[in-house]
């Protein structure tokens, strides 16, 4: 009898630890008459680093926008810890599931305006130490904090946008081709910082064109074609959790 209960508890614990943090179930997306996503089902585990690869227009970014709750699917559903997205306050959900755009948008006049915004969203006082720590990790000049956003290079803009998303760590971070406009050196810096973030338990979902990059950054890779997932295989990186 005791053996039975122990086995039951072990199985239950194993199952519950495998509970996906995000789940997409038979997702479909239509824009006008064009089918963008077709019956996509996907589980994203807590702490994993997942890469989604595929050609342009295959539906990768649309999938990410649905995960970020910036687009509602035409059919199927998205879940955060078993809870349907439609049942969760979108503002709360987006603080748990962050999203970084391919082309970063820096608003306001200075870098400071952008870094202040997350603190305002979380009703907290601006913390310069927290900001400077991230500046160091991304190898950015601390003086940039007071620069005009129009004076930044593409690489600096993307790193500032990433810092803005990382000031308050989400549980899942969605990264939409964030390194596509960066040179090799900046790409490696960004990958290294995000690897550390992943090690802290934040799940990463990368959308990328590069198979080589996906091998480097992910412990699971899925391939998409014509709005559907066509294959799934392991990445070269070991799982952090």
């Amino acid at each position: 009898m005791l053996k039975f209960w122990l086995r039951f508890l072990y199985t239950f614990e194993k199952k519950s630890s495998k509970l996906p943090i995000l789940k997409l179930s038979n997702l479909g997306l239509k824009n006008a008459d064009k089918l963008i996503l077709n019956d996509v089902s996907l589980d994203i585990e807590a702490g994993e680093s997942l890469a989604i690869i595929g050609a342009s227009g295959c539906g990768k970014s649309s999938l990410l926008r649905i995960l970020a709750n910036l687009t509602t699917p035409s059919s199927g559903a998205a879940y955060y810890q078993k809870q349907n997205y439609t049942q969760i306050n979108p503002t709360i959900l987006r603080r748990k599931v962050g999203y970084c755009f391919q082309i970063p948008c820096l608003f306001g006049e200075t870098v400071y305006d952008n870094l202040l915004f997350p603190f305002q969203v979380h009703s907290e006082k601006y913390n310069p130490q927290k900001v400077q720590k991230l500046f160091e990790q991304f190898e950015l000049n601390p003086a940039l904090e007071n620069s005009s956003v129009t004076m930044l290079s593409g690489g600096e803009k993307q790193r500032i946008a990433l810092i803005r998303s990382l000031l308050f760590l989400p549980e899942v971070l969605l990264l939409d081709e964030i390194t596509s406009a960066l040179d090799h050196e900046n790409t490696l810096i960004v990958e290294r910082v995000l690897e550390n973030i992943n090690a802290q338990g934040v799940s990463l979902v990368w959308v990328t064109h590069s198979l080589e990059q996906s091998q480097r950054i992910a412990n699971r890779i899925i391939t998409m074609k014509d709005g559907a997932i066509t294959s799934e295989h392991k990445g070269a990186r070991n799982a952090s959790s």
Partner: peptide
């Protein structure tokens, strides 16, 4: 649209995202 969606993605409500 990009500016508003960026702010929404940071967990902001609709009024702070569109106040400007």
């Amino acid at each position: 649209r990009n500016e508003i969606e960026t702010k929404l993605a940071l967990g902001s409500d609709i009024l702070p995202s569109a106040i400007n």
